[in-house]
């Protein structure tokens, strides 16, 4: 049980960062299929920088910075140059696999095996002493930041003017434009921030969850996060609940491996089967922001 919880926590934190990264620009009408690539990039930068600098936090900061820059580039391409968001996103993901594997092999050939700095575990007083669930409260400090991020995003999106304008941009950009909202600006910054958040999730995966960078290590988590956003009906709380479901599935798939002599692949396939199931169950009933994936039609 504790093992399942431990794995689930390590799995849920990247998924939360990632699904929030998917949610934020999606609400404004930008479909970031590029999530997978942002995450892989963050994993790469985080692993490399934390190994070379010797400081874990420097690795996280570098990942955020790199995610912000690349996110801004992709935002410019998708928002202002009006590239097809799905096409640009998928292609970016392909390029990210190539770039990160190439440069990681290159850097390792110069510096030898890279090992990201581990540690950073924080224990919440009292709660971490609880039996069984105590393990949840003795985690990396970013894991404790993740629920705060969900609350913050929920507050910003549904309780502030910025959130209202962001959602208006995604549902009715012409109206928002007429009301004086800078449609492109909102979409651009939401997408750039998405790059930073997804990269942070990737860095957590590489530095804390796995402790290494491997080729294409995100293994479809970006797409799983998109499913989680759909499953959560484009709301931070819903997405967090979806992420929890997937994290538990991942925990089970690891813990159950080898159960009754069944092939391990059967258990490893659980998250992917669950994604298919979840997206099948929820796809038709829900619809996202009205202008999702469409190029911007206002000119300002």
């Amino acid at each position: 049980m504790e093992a399942i919880l431990q794995i689930a926590v390590l799995a849920i934190v990247p998924l939360i960062f990632l699904s929030m990264a998917g949610l934020l620009p999606w609400v404004s009408g930008v479909l970031v299929v590029a999530l997978e690539g942002f995450m892989l990039l963050g994993a790469f930068v985080g692993a490399v920088v934390s190994s070379l600098s010797g400081y874990q936090s420097v690795g996280f900061l570098a990942a955020i910075g790199a995610g912000l820059v690349i996110g801004a580039v992709m935002a410019y391409v998708m928002v202002y140059l009006r590239a097809d968001q799905v096409v640009a996103g998928i292609a970016f993901n392909i390029a990210a696999v190539g770039a990160t594997s190439f440069f990681f092999a290159l850097i390792e050939s110069h510096h030898g095996k890279l090992t990201p700095v581990r540690g950073g575990t924080v224990s919440v007083p009292f709660l971490s002493d609880l039996p069984v669930v105590g393990v949840v409260f003795s985690q990396h400090w970013l894991a404790i930041l993740a629920p705060i991020l969900v609350v913050a995003l929920a507050f910003v999106l549904f309780r502030t003017g910025v959130g209202l304008r962001l959602r208006a941009v995604g549902d009715f950009s012409a109206g928002a434009h007429a009301a004086g909202v800078n449609v492109g600006g909102y979409r651009f910054w939401a997408t750039a921030a998405s790059g930073a958040l997804a990269a942070l999730g990737g860095a957590f995966l590489a530095i804390v969850s796995v402790g290494d960078f491997t080729e294409n290590m995100t293994a479809g988590r970006g797409y799983i996060a998109l499913t989680i956003v759909i499953l959560g009906r484009w709301k931070p709380w819903g997405a967090a609940a979806g992420a929890l479901l997937f994290a538990v599935a991942e925990g089970l798939s690891v813990v159950w491996q080898g159960f009754a002599g069944l092939p391990s692949q059967l258990f490893l396939s659980i998250p992917y089967l669950l994604t298919l199931l979840a997206v099948t169950a929820s796809a038709r009933a829900s619809h996202g922001p009205v202008e999702e994936g469409r190029p911007m039609t206002v000119w300002a």
Binding site: N93, I94, A95, A96, V97, G98, A99, S101, E215
Partner: peptide, 8 residues
């Protein structure tokens, strides 16, 4: 793997 970069 750099080919994927050249493709993407």
């Amino acid at each position: 793997n750099f080919v994927l970069l050249l493709v993407g």
